[in-house]
Design a protein around this nucleic acid. Structure first.
Length: 205
DNA sequence: AGAACGATCGACT
DNA sequence: GTCGATCGTTCTA
């Protein structure tokens, strides 16, 4: 049980996207510890992927973060009102990242619910759709462009194999789970890349 | 300077 | 299932 090192992020993006399933995301916010278990990811690879912001090594103010060292947080604004969190992968210079699509709440659920729903009461519907989308996760973790470029080997936002690494009690993961692979969401414009099976999801077997 | 476009979400038919 | 919100990023000129 340890915190994920820069070497982990430096690997192949598809491999990282797969291996990140079941890992724990820790967000330190005003001394509060928010934690979630990763259950859905997507891979984006600039070298060969028309859906990636840095396709063909395109370098702009926004994509600059994708050229940062592996283990950097790439956070951008989407549709004018939501944010997406990515983990930069591959050796530095290869612009690529894993998009975080969904987590399960592990710790700080009350704080996350507050960030996401305000004073509205939790309902069965809200619980079911609590953290099952990239914009929802960022909202619940209070992540915006202000956090773009954060070092994931630091103490504000990081990933680890187990919750103990963050001083939290062990989290009971389901005994039997299955990795389901499929096409990515919302990239219909990306020509041949729209069909790449680069989405990974953990489901109970 | 202006226009087009989103790696989304929630409200609604 | 459909649709609109909303604004930074990117490209064109």
């Amino acid at each position: 049980m340890a915190r994920l090192s820069r070497d982990f992020y430096a690997q192949d993006t598809l491999e990282a996207a797969r291996q990140l399933l079941g890992k724990y995301l820790i967000r330190c916010l005003d001394g509060q510890l928010l934690a979630g278990r990763i259950v859905e990811t997507e891979a984006y690879i600039g070298r060969c992927d028309k859906a990636c912001h840095a396709y063909g090594y395109r370098r702009t103010a926004r994509t600059e973060t994708l050229f940062a060292p592996p283990g950097t947080a790439y956070i951008y604004l989407i549709y004018g009102m939501y944010h997406c969190l990515n983990f930069v992968t591959e050796p530095q210079g290869e612009p690529a990242a894993v998009l975080l699509r969904a987590i399960q709440p592990v710790a700080g659920g009350d704080v996350m619910a507050r960030l996401r729903y305000g004073d509205k009461p939790m309902t069965a519907y809200r619980r079911k759709n609590f953290l099952n989308g990239p914009g929802k996760v960022c909202r619940a973790l209070a992540l915006t462009r202000a956090e773009n470029g954060l070092d994931l080997t630091g103490d504000t936002l990081f990933l680890c194999d187990g919750t103990e690494d963050a001083g939290l009690p062990p989290f009971p993961a389901p005994a039997k789970e299955l990795v389901v692979t499929g096409p990515r969401i919302g990239v219909d414009y990306a020509e041949e890349a729209r069909d790449f099976p680069w989405r990974f999801r953990l489901e109970e077997a």
